[in-house]
Amino acid sequence: MRKHRTLIKSAFSTALGVGAAVLLSGAAQAADLSLKGKKIGVAVVGTQHFWDREAFNGALDMVKELGGEPVPVDGGRDNQVHADNHDILLSNKVDAVISILGDGAVEPKFEALKGAGIPVFTVDHLSPHGVNNTTSDNYYMGTTIGRYMADAIGGKGKVAVFNAFEGALRICGIRAGLWKYVLQDYPGIEIIQPELAEEFANAPEDARKKTLDLLNQYPEGTLDAIHVGCWDQPAIGVVQALEEAGRTDVKVTALDGGPDTLEIMAEDGSPFVANVAQQPRLIGQTAAMNAARHFAGESLLPQTFVDVRPVNGPEEAKAVYEELGYGTL
């Protein structure tokens, strides 16, 4: 047992060492880059959710660290307001724009910025008008959560999915699409139709109500899992509903892995069994660094992928929580 503990301890210190080395090399790289004298617009769709806020703050802090002047605009979780905010950045004559999330409404705005010679660096939104998109490895996220969910229900059963944004946001298309792709190899798993549509602006409460309705429709023993296709704020409401209805036998899986959802996963007997955690702060920082690389004359690849951490079960939730610097559970 002691040997086991020593092994885990040494594995942790190695991981921490590697992490520190990566961070240090990042800092060293950042030291060579500069946004001095540049006005950088940073537009985010909203700051209510951990992910959005972290990516936004990460980008703002890195712009400042690199000597630039950030011009922040927040859409208040309204995609239309977020899109319109790009017009304000254009009229403010910024040197570059970092645009975090957003739906199709931002595309003509990106085109206008590009037309005015202002480079756009997107986060989680691949656009033909952007220089580069910084994002998590969504392909890995989609397939991993598919495998974990299939394993959690023993490879068969009925599954409900919150999937309102598969057609509207490319990241959701990849995540939900690849989750479904994996499930093709599990003929015993049936996805309940019609799929559920979450209201993103009021995600947990809306998902709680919709889950309670779903549980009425599918009595005990007829529903095995609920998956949230693109993020995990609705999963908070899903877990609340399962606990209220005493149906914690239904497994929950989702994607994003912020501290709030990792805490729920780490609880004993939590129905929330699997997730893939992203590093939103690092994503925002990377987007700002990419803007600096662009100004330094480096040519960037269309996409920069930032590592994710798969989370399977409460123990991994605790470990990832600590690893990503959220504290100890």
Partner: peptide
């Protein structure tokens, strides 16, 4: 036209 499409929730603002 403003949103290049219809977006749920735009009535609130």
């Amino acid at each position: 036209a403003r949103g290049s499409g219809s977006t749920p929730g735009s009535e609130e603002n």
